[in-house]
Simulated scan of single mutants.
Amino acid sequence: MSAKNMFLKPGFVRAPLQNGVGRYVCQLQRIVLKFCKSNGSSRGMRDFIEQDLVDFAKVNPGVVVYLKPRRHRGPVVVAEYLNGDRVWMSMSNKTHSEITKWVDVLRTQQGDNATTRLRKYQYTDYPSVQGPWTPFTHKLPELNTAELPDPAFGANNRLPMSATEQLRLMFEAQKLSGKSEDLKTAE
C-alpha cells in the first residue's frame, strides 16, 4: 500500500447496483452555484447562469439547483450526491463552455471516490506474484502483426475433425447418394 492511502478514509464502493437496468436514477441530488455579482473571475459563472441554467433545470428536474451570490469571493460549484458525497470545485476564471462541461461531468458521476481508499471484500495474505491475467497472457506475439484470417494461426488446422463434423459429412454424403439412387429409380 502506498503512503498516500493511509490518510484516506476507508470505504467500499457504494455504487447503486444495476442503475439504468430498469430505469436510470441520476445520482446528483443537489448543486449549489456560488458566485460574485461583480468579481471578474465569476464572469463565466454569471454567463452560465444567464444562458444555460434554466435549460439545465428543465432537463434535470430531479436535481435541486441553488444560487448563492457572495461578495468578493471566487465562483464555486458544490455537488451533493445520493450516497452522501460532496464534491467542491473552484470555477475561478473558467469560461462559460468550461463551466457547462464541468456541470455535466458532475451531473453524470456518482460521487467522489478519489477521497476514499477503496477496500475489497476479499483479502489474502499471499497475493499473486505472477501479475494479473489478461486475455492476451498466453497468446503468441506473432498475432500482433499478422493479417487475419491467417491459416497459420487458425485453430481448425491443428485439431482433428470433431464427431459432429464427421456426422454432418456422413449425412451429406448419404443424402447425395440417396438422391442419385432416387434419380436412377425415377428413370
Results as ranks from 00 to 15, higher is better:
R119C: 03
H138F: 14
R168T: 14
K175L: 03
P151A: 06
T145Q: 08
E142T: 13
D112H: 02
W133S: 06
L148R: 00
W133C: 04
L169C: 01
S180W: 02
F153K: 04
W133H: 09
L159G: 01
E172M: 09
E165I: 09
F171S: 05
E142M: 14
Y126N: 08
N113H: 05
P149F: 00
P141G: 08
P141A: 14
E181M: 06
A173I: 07
R158Y: 13
G154W: 07
K179F: 12
K139E: 00
A155D: 11
K175S: 11
T115Q: 13
Q166A: 01
S128V: 12
K179P: 03
Q109L: 10
E147R: 13
K175E: 06
Q166Y: 01
Q110E: 08
S128M: 09
F136K: 09
N157F: 12
P149N: 02
A173G: 12
L118R: 01
P151L: 04
E172C: 03
A114T: 09
P132S: 12
S162W: 11
T116S: 01
T124P: 03
A163P: 04
Q174F: 11
M170E: 14
S177L: 03
T164H: 01
A146R: 08
T134S: 10
L169A: 05
A155P: 00
R117H: 04
D112M: 04
P149S: 02
V129Y: 00
K179Y: 14
P141H: 11
Y123C: 12
L167H: 09
P135V: 02
S128E: 13
F171Q: 04
E165R: 14
N113K: 09
D150T: 07
Q109V: 07
K175R: 08
D125H: 15
N144T: 06
G154T: 14
S162V: 09
P141K: 15
P135L: 01
K175W: 02
D125W: 15
T137D: 12
T134P: 00
E172N: 05
A114K: 01
A155V: 10
T164W: 01
P151Q: 06
M170N: 09
P132Q: 11
W133Y: 10
D125P: 12
N156D: 08
P141C: 10
L176T: 13
A173C: 11
F136M: 07
P151E: 07
F153H: 05
E147T: 14
V129L: 03
G178V: 02
D125I: 06
S162A: 10
Y126K: 06
Y121H: 04
E165H: 07
Y123A: 13
Q174E: 13
S177I: 02
